[in-house]
């Protein structure tokens, strides 16, 4: 009986902790942002996109670009399913149009207004007028 209560207690604590984490994330505002794609810091594409409060960077990318995200084995997948069953979605972006990374020797770095982003494509708060850069970085260089 004690084990059951301890298990329920630990699951409730996990749910509460994840809920508080979710609350700590900044909410989105609607507007327009500029999205740039770069390869090793060299600009390859630039476009403006309107977004709503319900959008995330992921939904914007999915709507306007050809993207692939990591699956559970870190292989690129068009399904782009969130890598979590807990409510905290954590997609890892691997391909965006011509940008291609493999997660092992290269990755896509996200910057917002020139600063490295604190969150990934599912949690990053979007603000009107933001300039978001997706830069394919190679670790071999």
């Amino acid at each position: 009986m004690r084990k059951i209560w301890v298990t329920i207690g630990s699951m409730v604590m996990l749910a509460a902790a994840l809920f508080i984490y979710d609350l700590s994330l900044e909410p989105n505002t609607a507007g327009t942002l500029t999205l740039t794609l770069s390869e090793a810091g060299v600009l390859v594409q630039e476009a403006d996109h309107a977004f709503t409060e319900d959008d995330t960077l992921y939904t914007l990318l999915e709507r306007h670009y050809d993207i692939e995200c990591a699956d559970a084995s870190y292989a690129p997948s068009e399904a782009c399913e969130p890598l979590s069953l807990s409510g905290v979605e954590g997609r890892i972006l691997m391909h965006v149009n011509e940008l291609e990374t493999d997660w092992v020797t290269s990755y896509i770095e996200i910057s917002v207004n020139g600063n490295k982003a604190n969150y990934g494509i599912d949690q990053l708060p979007l603000k009107d007028g933001d300039i978001i850069d997706l830069n394919a970085v190679s670790l071999d260089e």
């Binding site: 298990t7 630990s10 994840l18 984490y21 979590s84 905290v88 490295k116 604190n118 970085v137 670790l139």
Partner: peptide, 27 residues
């Protein structure tokens, strides 16, 4: 070392996954 990410940001981003791993280990 590898990516130059801010350690505090890394820890915050990793926290949900640490919580899930820790709880699943415990149970």
């Amino acid at each position: 070392l590898q990516t130059g990410v801010d350690p505090r940001i890394y820890l915050m981003a990793d926290l949900p996954f640490q919580l899930i791993m820790a709880t699943s280990n415990f149970i």
